[in-house]
Computed example of a mutant assay.
Amino acid sequence: MLDETDRALLTLLVADAGQSASALGRQLGLSQPATWRRIKRLQEAGILTGRRLLLDAEKLGFGVTVFLGIKLATKGRVGMEDFERAVGGIPEVQVVTHVLGLYDYRLRVVARDLADFERVLRRRIMTLPGVGNVEANVMLSEERRPGPL
């Protein structure tokens, strides 16, 4: 079970996962070894599963983000597995989420511009196994990134 110090540690790590255990400990009123033990325990419990860098897609030349709803034309385990395996090979697809509702999958796709997105859509996404209906929503702005729970 997590205590308040664990929760505070997680909040600090979400804000900046590159901080040293020593710097985190100073903010929490803990020694470096005590902080490191907590981090290790959270990793072993599967609560901390890795650290990521957030890249600014726009500054890297990807000015368009599109959320796609994908409804598979063919249902069943094989169709889903084929789709998931194939979509994993498209670098412009940043996130693949299997969902309940109108669509079977939600994809977050980045592209250099709308013409580049159209190319990715026509040549890569629409040719994936089992793809039926597709709905696209172009992101206008992102107000909040995922943070601590």
Results as ranks from 00 to 15, higher is better:
residue 71 K to T: 14
residue 70 I to W: 04
residue 132 G to V: 04
residue 72 L to R: 05
residue 9 L to P: 08
residue 9 L to Q: 10
residue 20 S to G: 12
residue 42 L to A: 10
residue 8 A to P: 08
residue 113 D to S: 07
residue 31 S to E: 09
residue 134 V to E: 10
residue 130 G to T: 02
residue 65 T to I: 10
residue 73 A to Q: 13
residue 132 G to C: 08
residue 5 T to L: 15
residue 121 L to M: 05
residue 4 E to M: 12
residue 47 I to R: 01
residue 31 S to K: 15
residue 90 I to E: 01
residue 65 T to Y: 03
residue 72 L to M: 13
residue 33 P to D: 09
residue 94 Q to L: 07
residue 122 R to T: 09
residue 148 P to H: 15
residue 84 E to C: 10
residue 40 K to I: 01
residue 46 G to W: 06
residue 104 D to F: 00
residue 3 D to Q: 12
residue 29 G to K: 07
residue 98 H to I: 00
residue 135 E to G: 12
residue 31 S to N: 11
residue 11 T to Q: 15
residue 53 L to N: 14
residue 135 E to K: 15
residue 40 K to G: 00
residue 50 G to W: 03
residue 80 M to I: 13
residue 94 Q to K: 07
residue 128 L to D: 03
residue 121 L to F: 11
residue 95 V to S: 00
residue 71 K to H: 10
residue 17 A to N: 15
residue 75 K to V: 01
residue 31 S to I: 11
residue 76 G to N: 05
residue 18 G to H: 15
residue 101 G to R: 07
residue 60 L to H: 13
residue 125 I to F: 06
residue 34 A to G: 14
residue 51 R to C: 03
residue 38 R to D: 12
residue 65 T to W: 02
residue 122 R to W: 01
residue 57 A to W: 08
residue 137 N to V: 15
residue 101 G to F: 06
residue 55 L to D: 00
residue 64 V to G: 09
residue 146 P to E: 14
residue 147 G to E: 12
residue 62 F to R: 08
residue 65 T to P: 06
residue 147 G to Y: 06
residue 106 R to C: 00
residue 54 L to C: 11
residue 116 D to W: 06
